[in-house]
Design a binder for these strands. Structure first.
Length: 304
DNA sequence: CTGACAGCGCATCTTC
DNA sequence: GAAGATGCG
DNA sequence: GTCAG
């Protein structure tokens, strides 16, 4: 069963294309193909042997040939070529938050950043901040993420995550009680993913300023990564990133759906909505620009 | 063969 | 310093 | 890069 390996290389292929600055839709095509195989209920080798590869959604001539090559030879020529032109630790680097493909490409080209250690160096000696687009705040955020990455606590177990969610909710109820409505975990925490990368919480409030400000002031906050009217983002205990989003009542359900994801699930859902003549976003579900739901998460699934 | 492929907030930088 | 563009998630 | 029209 090589499904996992095929999914892995297609996802990495997408990352390499992203680093190269390829067309976004092409990148997406590789990710969609990877997802198709990830969700495939049978052995990809069997499908391949039976010549049914391009019957799978999202797999056409180009990707079929690459999968073919991978199953035949255990490698993909174009993949190796792309990898050779990228930093040695490209996948590691791209997993650092706020250090995306464009920034990675820039740092690689201008400063020769090949490894996570290189990145740390250019952050600490300030050379990264001399690059166009790299303001102080951005550099600081990258440094924080890098430390998070290196402390290898970048993956939080679901149990610990649940505790942190409870802690945040507790704090909000104590300090801002009455100033908000529903409160719910979202993101991978809500999906009960075994390990999560960061923690998303959603709060129902017309004006989020107060509650986000309360959030940013809770005990254990080591850094406020951002605090606006609709979104706040903090680092808790120097290790855990927690995001709080404030949304108005009529779109709480839509936002909960959206921020619970997964991302792939959302894209999928929006495709379905579109085909059915609806538009779904984090504010609600719409038909001819008329809101037909959004206050509750069920609104969206009922309509579709 | 051609056009669509989800769509948005925040931080930052660039341009006027 | 407002408006637009870019990068990121 | 893939798919629907």
């Amino acid at each position: 069963m090589k499904n996992g390996a095929v999914v892995d290389i297609l996802e990495k292929f997408a990352n390499l294309l992203e680093f190269k600055g390829e067309n976004l839709f092409k990148i997406n095509a590789y990710r969609r193909a990877a997802r198709t195989i990830a969700e495939l209920g049978e052995d990809i080798e069997k499908v391949w042997q039976e010549g049914r590869l391009d019957q799978l959604p999202g797999i056409g001539d180009a990707i079929r040939e690459k999968v073919n090559q991978f199953l035949l030879e255990g490698r993909i020529r174009q993949f190796d070529e792309l990898a050779a032109a990228a930093p040695r630790e490209i996948f590691d680097l791209l997993s650092i938050q706020h250090f995306g493909p464009k920034t990675a490409a820039l740092a690689f080209k201008e400063l020769g950043v090949e490894t996570v250690a290189d990145l740390r160096r250019v952050l600490e000696d300030g050379s990264l901040s001399t690059l166009p687009g790299m303001g102080p705040k951005k550099c600081e955020n990258i440094l924080k993420s890098l430390k998070l990455h290196e402390s290898s606590s970048s993956q939080i177990s679901i149990g610990l995550a649940a505790d942190l969610v409870a802690r945040v909710m507790d704090h909000l109820e104590k300090t801002a009680s009455g100033r908000f409505g529903r409160l719910s975990a979202a993101g991978s925490v809500r999906r009960y993913k075994e390990t999560v990368h960061d923690i998303d919480i959603l709060v129902e409030a017309e004006d989020g300023r107060e509650i986000i400000s309360a959030f940013a002031q809770m005990d254990g906050v080591t850094r406020v990564l951002g605090a606006g009217a609709t979104k706040g983002s903090i680092l808790l205990d120097d290790r855990f990133q927690v995001d709080l989003r404030a949304v108005p009542s009529e779109s709480f359900g839509a936002a909960l759906q959206y921020f619970t994801g997964s991302q792939e699930h959302n894209v999928h859902l929006r495709e379905i909505a579109k085909k059915a003549g609806y538009k779904v976003n984090e504010y609600g579900i719409f038909h001819d620009d008329q809101r037909v739901g959004g206050q509750f998460e069920e609104d969206i699934y009922h309509v579709l």
